[in-house]
Amino acid sequence: MTPFIEVKNLTHKYSAGTPFEHTALDDVSFSLERGEFIGVIGHTGSGKSTLMQHLNGLLKPDSGEILLDGVDIWQDKKTTRQTRFRVGLVFQYPEYQLFEETVYKDIAFGPKNMGLKADEIDRRVKESAAAVGLSDEQLTVSPFDLSGGQKRRVAIAGVLAMEPELLILDEPTAGLDPAGREEILNYIDSYRKAKHATIMMVSHSMGDVARMADRLIVMNKSKIALMDTPAEVFRHADELVQMGLNIPVLTQVFMKLKQLGLPVEPVYTQAQAVKALTALKGGNADA
C-alpha cells in the first residue's frame, strides 16, 4: 500500500552556489500514514521549518521527492497548487497574518482561494470556527479587536477551513498560558479525529509532544536523528541531551528512580507515571 506521505532523499540548500551555502535538509526520508499525530522536535536551525515548508510545496527540493498518495507534488503546476490545499500549514505566531475586516472573512480566505462555492465556504467557516471554540457572534467582529489567544484561534481556523488532510503546525501554543495551551492542543486533536487527518506538530514543549504524538521525529543538524514512538525516543535520553534538547521532567524523575534502584522503566506522561508508581506501591504492600 502506498503511504499517505512519502519523503524520499529530500535535500535542500539555502543560497546554493554562494559562499553562504547552507544545507538545511540533508537526505531526509520518511513516510506518514493517515490519522497519525507526529511530533517534531529539534532546536532552532535543525531544519524543522525547512522540512515543513517542503511538505506543502512552499519550497522546492534541490533533490529528492515528496509523494502525496504516491504522486510527486512537483509533477505539474496543478498538483503543486492542489498540494497547498491538501496540506495545511500553520506558521509560528499565525495571528500576525490576519488581515480581513471580520473574523468570518479572514477564515474564508483559504476556502475562497480554493475556488469553492459560497455555501460550501459558509459551512466550512462556521464549522472550523466552532472547532476552535469561536462563537457565532465573534465571526462578525474585526479580528484585531480580539485577545491574543483568540486571534491565534482565528488564524488556526483559517487553515482548518481548507480541510487539509495533513495539518502542520509550528509551535501552535507558543506564548500561551497553560490553560490556553491545553485548549489549542485539544482542538487540534479533535480535528484529527473528526477528519482522520494527519497532524505534524513542531513544539519545544517535550511534555506536550510526548503526550499527544503517536510518533516523534527528532531533527538534528539537517538530518532526522530519530523517528519512533515517544517511548523509544526518550529511551535515547543521553543523545537528546547532547543535541541540546530537553527531556520531559517526568522522564528525568524516572531515570533517577531507576538509578536509585527501583524497578521502573522510563515514562513520559503523568498517567503512565501514576500507573507505574501505584503498581509499585501495590506490589510493596502485597509483599
Binding site: 498560558d177 497553560p178 490553560a179 490556553g180 511534555g207 520531559p248 521532567v249 517526568l250 524523575v253 503523568q270 507515571a273 501514576v274 508508581l277 501505584t278 506501591k281
Partner: peptide, 20 residues
C-alpha cells in the same frame, strides 16, 4: 486559576490522590 504547578509537583499531587 488556569495555571499548573511544575510537573514534579503535579505528579506528587496526583499520586496523593492514589493513596500516597
Amino acid at each position: 486559576i488556569g495555571l499548573a504547578a511544575p510537573d514534579t509537583a503535579e505528579l506528587c499531587w496526583e499520586l496523593n490522590k492514589h493513596g500516597f
